[in-house]
Design a binder for these strands. Structure first.
Lengths: 179, 179
DNA sequence: TACTTCATGTAAAAAGTTACATGATTCC
DNA sequence: GGAATCATGTAACTTTTTACATGAAGTA
């Protein structure tokens, strides 16, 4: 049971999903490829933390829809109370800007603008996620509380949005430093 | 040549250092243990990107002080112009807050406060780094430009500080949501 | 015709963490 | 007396990424 396994249980605690869907929905908050997720789901099933049913589809490939068990929910609740690992960020850009004086200004600017495009796309994706959440929610988002099912996603999007905004401000500030 | 290898070259481009020192100085921007760094330094030496000299010490263990070569500098300059990998962040807290409704308010608050302590310590460490940099710099930090040797570290600390501030704001906001 | 999406899986390689190993000095 | 710092290294393990494998439907 590693962190990603608990992450998958977290998603399944809200809604039953296929491995493919889990991969798509966990991406914004924990980068993981399908090749990592499928074996973990098999393992979670072996442990009794999830069940699955085969769902046959005619237009699309068949799928396995996983559901969390009572035992899985217990494991999840316990994991939350355990000390939380420190976050890990690895950003190649940090290592590059440290040596940015080695290249000329045009090249330095290019490096930053490439990253700015990335952050803008990311910001847009979070805006879409928030929009979807708003549509599906009975209450206005800022009135959600800990017991509402949308609460978790709402606070996560807020967290990610604040950080991407900080990143964009830094990019602009940095570009100013180059002129 | 992976990203960490270029990160080590980046540090060595400013100043010759031992493996132990490299480990300490790269930590705030790229998490890596000594067991990963020592083999990479041997590899960089084999490639001709770095040289080293044995430095004998009487009070402390002897060390190997690495210096970047012209070839290493060329490799570094080229790497900067290459497309930059997307940043990777893995934060167990994100996965936990998604399911925070599963535990009671005291437990939820504990999870957040634990993380807040972590961010405050981190903020302090960056404040120290900035203080050290200020001491060793001829110019005021906000007047540094791309050609000053302190520039890279200055902009990195600024980047990290902005993000940790965003994280702290989120923590407070989040704690408000729990009451 | 070629690419993307949906859907699941395995194999191999790379990257990263933890543990083992040694040993002097300094600080509490 | 015990822990932390300095200093380098290897071995084993876990985690993550990339590549291999298949195949139908829809889109450009």
């Amino acid at each position: 049971m590693n962190t990603l396994s608990y992450g998958l249980l977290s998603l399944l605690a809200k809604k039953s999903r296929s491995g493919y869907e889990l991969m798509q929905h966990i991406q914004p908050f924990w980068q993981a490829k399908h090749s990592q997720i499928y074996p973990l789901l098999a393992q979670l099933e072996g442990l009794g933390h999830v069940d699955f049913v085969h769902v046959l589809q005619s237009d699309k490939p068949d799928k396995k829809v996983y559901t969390i068990t009572e035992q899985g929910l217990d494991a999840l609740r316990h994991w939350i109370t355990l000390p939380t690992d420190d976050p890990v960020t690895r950003d190649e850009l940090s290592l590059k800007v440290y040596s940015i004086g080695l290249v000329n200004q045009e090249q330095a600017r290019k490096v930053l603008e490439e990253r700015e495009v990335y952050y803008l796309k990311k910001k847009e994706r979070f805006a879409h996620l928030l929009e979807n959440l708003k549509q599906g929610s009975a209450k206005p988002l800022d009135e959600l509380d800990i017991h509402d099912p949308e609460f978790g996603m709402y606070v996560l999007i807020h967290k990610a949005s604040m950080k991407v905004d900080a990143d964009l401000v830094w990019c602009e500030w940095m570009k100013g430093k180059l002129t």
